[in-house]
Computed example of a mutant assay.
Amino acid sequence: EQIIAEESGICGVNELLTMHFGPQEILLNVSIDFSDKLTSGEVQDRVSALEHSIKDRYPDIKRVFIEAQRTHESTGAQQ
């Protein structure tokens, strides 16, 4: 979460899930609320930068899946 928080253009993390396939093989799934001010190209750049930063800091994470999804607060929906 700290790596994601350090990236500009991100409003928040909705969900962060890991699946461990072995002691040195982890899959990370994360749902992120990106700023509406970002273009689709900028979101792609943020996703790529996050993947590299996460894998560099945590080499056991072999696969990263990032989903762009608004938080309930961003849509005005009630929980």
Rank of each mutant, 00 (worst) to 15 (best):
G9T: 10
S31F: 02
S48F: 11
V47N: 05
H20M: 13
K55T: 05
I66R: 02
Q2R: 13
T75P: 00
E6G: 10
G22C: 02
A77C: 09
I10A: 03
V13A: 14
Q2G: 10
Q79R: 09
L16R: 08
R46G: 01
P23H: 06
R46M: 02
E25Q: 15
S8V: 10
R70T: 07
V30T: 07
D60M: 14
R46E: 02
D33N: 05
E15F: 03
G41N: 10
E51Y: 03
T71K: 11
S48D: 12
R57S: 13
L50P: 00
V47A: 09
G9N: 10
K62T: 15
Q69K: 07
A68H: 04
E67A: 15
Q24C: 11
S48K: 13
F65K: 10
E7S: 12
G41M: 08
Q78M: 07
I32L: 14
Q44E: 10
L17Y: 09
H52I: 09
F65N: 14
E51W: 01
E67C: 12
Y58R: 05
E73K: 06
T18F: 15
K62H: 08
V64Y: 10
K37P: 02
L17N: 12
I61C: 07
E42H: 04
S53Q: 09
H52M: 08
D45K: 09
R63V: 06
A5M: 05
R57T: 13
G12W: 01
E25M: 13
Q24D: 14
F34Y: 06
G12T: 08
P23F: 01
H20E: 14
N14H: 04
L27K: 04
R46H: 09
F21T: 01
I61T: 07
L27I: 04
V43G: 00
K37R: 14
Q2W: 06
H72W: 11
L16G: 03
D45A: 14
A77F: 04
H20L: 13
A77Q: 09
E67T: 15
F34K: 01
T18Q: 11
A5E: 10
Q44D: 13
H72Q: 11
H20C: 10
L27M: 15
Q79D: 07
